[in-house]
Design a protein around this nucleic acid. Structure first.
Length: 430
RNA sequence: GUGGUCGUAGCUCAGCUGGUCAGAGCGCCGCGUUGUGGUCGCGGAUGUCGGGGGGUUCGAAUCCCCUCGGUCACCCCA
């Protein structure tokens, strides 16, 4: 009877080396970008009380239908987080930090849905939030940092879509105008969109169906229903982006997934990725959310960005490749392994990244391992070197000169670390 | 949740309408070089033909159904 074989659950995936090195680098890049802008890391639990995410006013599918929720052994109803913002707001309300509170995070997010390219049941997001300031310049800063992340990754073919929802009062008023307008034209809409007129009129604007798009092309626009305050806020955001040299496209039909958004909303969309799940970074302002979670009236804004989708976009542009060599030196020991054991420890203590072969493989096999490791140098210790108190340092990266292998040197063991450091710095500058 | 499509060695895939169909390339391992990576040559291993269940048949990787998974679109979102 064959034993059952397990595999990663549907919609989840393992990231193995060397691909995982891209993840490490992406996270490091993100941390650099946000920390130089004054954001600090917020580590918060991956699950929360269900109510943190599932609020009465929230109609997003991610929260209504796709939550990974369960009752724990103590009877508490909890949920794996489907998005990053609500957790941050909960932490803000709980700890009442000084404002503006600028935090960033990197976290898995869970949604029970059918997987496809760029959409998973467990995906990973980096994001940030600023709580406690209504200044439109904060909107500009948040969008700028998102933009800088993409720049740092090397992404060029990206479009910034910008919209505003106005204040929540503007939004509510507009939604009713829109609903009334749509009700009169319900029969002209694509069949699948008709129910949304009642449940989620703004989503009708976002429909991908042609029949619906033809109708909504003339629908009332939020821009015509903004209060002077909202107009001024949005104008200042646009002015700031222009001053920063960040190109944007006004997208009056841009409808973000969560209902908590007010004022500025935005998405960054890669233009070269042709699947439907393309948005790599999205966010907006949410001036009522803190109150909904029991805090004082506090404005907030942030974005989330999907790591899997960022990498898909990088692949489409051929940028941000996986890093190459993971180690500097591969130690080869044909005297039985004790030399490799001690020498790797010595080199590592000196800050030199190194690895070795195990299982007492032959010289040839160890050299193949050295070659495969990507290390620029092999350090060879055999019986002769051991007797002489030396090691052979052999460059691996230079191409063969015809059939002649690259030149190697004999180095006294006492000088080995210094020699390798010197050789490595020369190798790095080539 | 709805619909389409696919699922053969670690990877990419071939296998025509059921009867040497269990294969190729790459990768991997060994040897040529008992102390030297690439290239080259020689040799080798690997799969219950994605897993399980059921059906048709003298006979199924090959046909049908269920199930699991990938993938694409919708829904929705990062």
């Amino acid at each position: 009877m064959a034993r059952a074989k397990f595999q990663a659950p549907k919609g989840t995936h393992d990231v193995l080396p060397p691909t995982s090195a891209r993840w490490e680098r992406l996270l490091a890049t993100y941390a650099t970008v946000v920390e130089r802008a004054g954001f600090g890391l917020l580590q918060s639990p991956m699950f929360e009380d269900l109510g943190v995410f599932q609020r009465e006013t929230e109609g997003a599918d991610a929260v209504r239908k796709e939550m990974y929720d369960f009752v724990d052994k103590g009877g508490q109803h909890v949920a794996l987080r489907p998005e990053g913002t609500a957790s941050v707001v909960r932490a803000f309300v709980q700890h009442n930090p000084l404002t503006p509170w600028k935090v960033w995070y990197a976290t898995p997010a869970f949604r029970y849905e059918r997987a496809q390219a760029g959409r998973y049941r467990q995906h990973h997001q980096v994001g940030l939030e600023v709580l406690g300031s209504a200044d439109p310049d904060v909107d500009v800063e948040v969008i700028s940092v998102g933009w800088e992340l993409l720049q740092a990754l090397g992404l060029q073919q990206v479009e910034l879509l910008l919209n505003t929802m106005g204040t929540s009062a503007d939004r509510l008023a507009y939604v009713e105008v829109l609903r009334a307008w749509l009700v009169e034209r319900r029969d002209e809409l694509a069949e699948d969109d008709r129910d949304k007129v009642d449940t989620h009129p703004m989503r009708v604007l976002d429909s991908k169906r042609r029949a619906t798009q033809q109708v909504t092309a003339h629908a009332p626009a939020i821009a015509d229903h903004l209060s002077p305050e909202s107009e001024a806020h949005f104008a200042r955001v646009q002015e700031g982006l222009t001053a920063r040299g960040i190109p944007f496209t006004l997208a009056p039909r841009l409808v973000r997934g969560f209902d908590y958004y007010t004022h500025t909303t935005f998405e960054l969309v890669p233009t070269l990725v042709d699947n439907a799940q393309a948005t790599i970074l999205g966010g907006g302002r949410y001036d009522g959310l803190v109150e909904e979670l029991g805090g004082p009236p506090t404005p907030g804004i942030g974005f989330g960005s999907g790591i899997e989708r960022l990498l898909i976009a990088c692949d489409a542009e051929g940028v941000f490749p996986a890093p190459e060599a993971r180690i500097d030196v591969f130690v080869i020991d044909v005297t039985g392994g004790a030399e490799a054991r001690d020498l790797t420890a010595e080199l590592r203590a000196a800050g030199i990244r190194c690895d070795r072969a195990f299982d007492q493989k032959g010289m040839r096999a160890q050299m193949k391992g050295a070659d495969r490791s990507g290390a620029p140098f092999a350090v060879i210790v055999g019986d002769q070197e051991l007797a002489d108190g030396v090691a052979t340092v052999r460059p691996l990266r230079h191409d063969f000169d015809g059939d002649q292998p690259s030149a190697q040197q004999t180095v006294p063991r006492a000088d080995l670390v210094a020699h390798l450091r010197d050789a490595l710095s020369k190798d790095a500058t080539e």
